[in-house]
Nucleic acid binder design. Structure first.
Length: 340
DNA sequence: CGGCCAATAT
DNA sequence: TATATTGGCC
């Protein structure tokens, strides 16, 4: 816990300062500290700022099946502690993606998933902020925390927090998925803490996920189509591939055409919520969403549209972005269901 | 510099 | 065991 780093310099500090504030939201975990672990206790909780989360969450909650109790009960406790957290403060600044809260909406995550919460929350670490100050200036932004035991092994593990990832995605979008290269991305992101390698790897992963998603999407489309054509239903097939919740209609991408999505998958049925993860979309989606639902600030199902999540297990934040260059067509994503 | 593969840690 | 992230190599 104390590893915060009095010195705070990993190389990150200086660098990202000017970026925008948000940049700093990321954090790095110390090697493997226990920080992340959320014991049941709630140490983390203390750290975390549910406040923000919940604040917004309110909207979402209703949709979700979260137990209010839990939230209320546990959280309240934390809250006090959370005072420090400034989670939102720092990062929220960004375009207003305040969706973090939305996250909480997920509900499940909050409670059980430590990953997300942890990640995010931790990210902002109260301590850090505290001591470091959240100014955009330098400190705050470290994605990387180095944990050095006394020894000084500063291994930093980059935590690709939602924020960070978001930035990453933005950059990629701007560049165009095809053209996005590590160095550029890095520049765009403005986060100097990261190394080319880091980005490259992430990029790789990102691409990979994207590919998967697209593939999945296509597949789904085909199936649906087939079904439609043949009039046969696949029955419960549902393709057994669902690692975690792949089949679940991702908010992000959902099925494209899905003409008849209705009867497709029996097995999955309508569970309260599919898997627990979420698929957040970084930016684009949001934009899109906004367009779609201009009236209400909060989109219909906010629950899904939260970017805050993590790579909990599958494809949390990886979403398909087409090149952001000019088109924001969510083609795949977003909107597909409308016609249903 | 960019990408991929392999290794390691969680 | 699966996944995420890092490091190294081409």
């Amino acid at each position: 816990m104390l590893a915060l780093s009095p010195s705070t310099r990993d190389g990150c500090d200086g660098a990202s300062e000017f970026l925008d504030t948000s940049s700093c939201g990321f954090k790095i975990n110390m090697e493997e500290d226990e920080f992340l672990d959320f014991p049941d206790h709630g140490d983390l909780l203390d750290i975390i700022d549910f406040d923000d989360l919940f604040g917004v969450a309110g909207d979402v909650l209703p949709d979700l099946e979260i137990d209010p109790e839990i939230l209320a009960g546990d959280f309240s406790d934390h809250m006090n502690a959370s005072s420090t957290i400034t989670t939102a403060s720092d990062k929220t600044d960004s375009q207003g993606e305040t969706n973090y809260k939305g996250v909480s909406g997920k509900g499940e995550e909050v409670i059980s998933k430590r990953d997300d919460a942890a990640a995010e929350t931790v990210t902002y670490d109260a301590h850090t902020s505290d001591r470091k100050k959240k100014y955009p200036s330098s400190a705050s932004s470290k994605n990387v925390n180095r944990l050095s035991n006394n020894e000084g092994k500063r291994k930093m593990k980059v935590d690709w927090t939602p924020e960070l990832h978001r930035r990453f995605v933005e950059a990629v979008e701007q560049l165009g998925v095809d053209k996005a290269v590590p160095s550029r991305i890095l520049e765009l992101m403005g986060v100097h803490c990261l190394t080319r390698h880091n980005v490259a790897s992430h990029l790789q992963k990102y691409r990979s996920h994207r590919k998967h998603l697209l593939a999945r999407e296509a597949e789904a489309a085909n199936w649906t189509r087939k079904r439609h054509i043949y009039g046969v239903d696949t029955g419960g097939n549902v393709n057994g591939r669902s690692k975690n919740g792949w089949l679940a209609p991702a908010p992000t991408l959902g099925f494209p055409p899905t003409p008849v999505a209705v009867a497709p998958a029996p097995p999955v049925h309508h569970h309260p919520f599919r898997p627990l993860h979420v698929w957040g979309h970084p930016t684009v989606d949001q934009s899109v969403m906004s367009h779609m639902w201009p009236k209400h600030l909060p989109p219909p199902s906010t629950a899904m549209s939260n970017p805050p999540f993590w790579p909990v297990s599958d494809s949390p934040y990886w979403h398909p972005i087409h090149n952001g260059t000019a088109s924001y067509m969510p083609n795949t994503t977003t909107v597909m269901n409308k016609h249903i």
